[in-house]
Write a protein that binds this DNA or RNA. Structure first.
Lengths: 269, 269
DNA sequence: CGCCGGGTTGATTTCAGTCAAGCAACGTGG
DNA sequence: CCACGTTGCTTGACTGAAATCAACCCGGCG
């Protein structure tokens, strides 16, 4: 994990655009403006420039541990490019994937109190660039700037919504259905037919969906009969709407015709 | 759902204590101070009394819907006594339980922006009393009072930690193990042998653990052989430490002797 | 009484995990 | 350049866990 310069200028659109066009990862990081990150999109200039002074951009190769579950929180981390996987480590040592963060997503919920520790471990998946802001500075700024505070709150809300959705799918859908929904989430909106490349390897996808890779492979095989062509890592969805329809069928197939009773109307102690 | 008076005095320890001793639910609600709720424990008096003016206490019987997924957020809700179940409703109509809130827990993440909607449905489980604060007022106060803002943030953090733990257990533990951990979470800390009553019926517990009630029943049967006596709704844990040990064994039994490779060190697109 | 609703139990099926083999793509070193 | 090991992915045969279907028990309660 080597640290790069921290030229976090807050408004160099042209320079950034040039870098983006070139597609050079390092250059992108260099020219990236905090303003482009959802978390900082609506922050006042003053707060943002203070933040920029404190922020450090880092480029990591694959498999680098950014922080470990239980470590004291020293930095707020945002992903600029690449992917970071978050996982829980059980006392026994086995890891369960919780989520994968990409693009402009924040990794840890910015926390206030001191003596706080990370609730998960974070590790890069493929080459990745991130921004780190010292947690203490960040907390102080979040207190002072209403806009930043609101952004943090919104971020937490998004994260909660994501986790709730994950719990829902784990509890109520089988492997095939979860995969189908995952594929759909990758399809660019509005296109009936689409072709794209899986963002990360199938082991990771399996872990994300909560199944073994063999099971995932078989799930892909089933989807093949519903218009989803796969070639190792390239996906072709022949008809998005058809796949959506299939999802509903799969869902219906799982639960018997029509349920009469809801989830109980039981009484507590 | 009938609304009671909103006598939210902020410091009547003696009166509250008396009501508590009597154990009368209505009286408790009446005498309850916002100060007793974790969310408001450290708030400045001024903010708290403003809040108290806006807050309404309500007593509900079992099976009452507090709000529905997709409804615009009008109130921040905190549980005073009883239980509230939160669930997601799929388009097809089937419900999946996400969490159960009790004691002094908040139900929804307090949100700022207008036009926000509830991400889950909330319904009482057994007779329950709750406090409602209009969302708009609450948001304004949270902006103005740093202490309240911090409390909200802490609350969100707790909620995230809980959801992450639930995902972890769903992905990495079988039904027996999840039940064992659930039982352990109900045991009062520090006691080697304990006896208590399940907080809600077994259908709900099954939904919480993400299994069918039949499976839960069998899981209880297995635990019976490990020192957990059950009599419909009453539980006797003969030895907490023994149960903890069993959990580790169950965990070890699931995953083969010793894993060499970690979760992959794969590369992204 | 008889009729629930909640809980248990048993028989069977379905889904996903395990074990094991095999294949294609890739990089490395001879 | 090819032999080779590695890594990611797929497939098949089998096992095991949990869902399903169904019967039954038992403690209220009209």
């Amino acid at each position: 994990m080597r640290s790069d310069m921290n030229d976090l200028t807050i408004g160099l659109g042209a320079r950034k655009a040039r870098a983006m066009r070139r597609g050079d990862r390092l250059k992108i990081a260099e020219a990236f403006s905090l303003r482009d990150l959802p978390l900082f999109a609506n922050i006042d200039d003053e707060t943002l420039s203070t933040l920029a002074l404190e922020a450090k951009v880092e480029s990591c190769e694959a498999g680098v541990t950014i922080f470990r579950q239980g470590d004291p929180i020293v930095s707020i981390v945002v992903v600029l490019s690449g992917f970071v996987k978050l996982m829980r480590i059980a006392p026994g040592g086995d890891e369960t994937l919780i989520a994968i963060r990409a693009n402009g997503e924040t990794i840890v919920e910015p926390v206030m109190g001191p003596d706080e520790t990370y609730g998960v471990s974070a590790e890069t998946v493929g080459p990745t660039t991130i921004v780190k802001v010292p947690a203490a500075r960040f907390a102080r700024l979040a207190k002072e700037s209403a806009a930043l505070g609101a952004a943090v709150e919104q971020d937490a809300k998004n994260r909660i919504a994501g986790l709730v959705a994950e719990i829902e799918s784990l509890k109520s859908q089988n492997a095939d259905l979860r995969l189908a929904n995952f594929i759909l989430s990758l399809c660019p909106p509005g296109e009936e037919q689409c072709r794209f490349r899986l963002p990360y390897d199938k082991r990771l996808i399996a872990a994300l969906l909560g199944v073994k890779q063999e099971t995932l492979s078989r799930a892909f095989a089933k989807l093949r009969e519903h218009g989803v062509r796969t070639e190792t890592r390239d996906i072709l969805v022949e008809s998005v709407s058809r796949l959506v329809a299939q999802c509903e069928h799969l869902g219906r197939a799982m639960r018997p015709p029509e349920r009469t009773g809801r989830l109980t109307r039981d009484n507590a102690a």
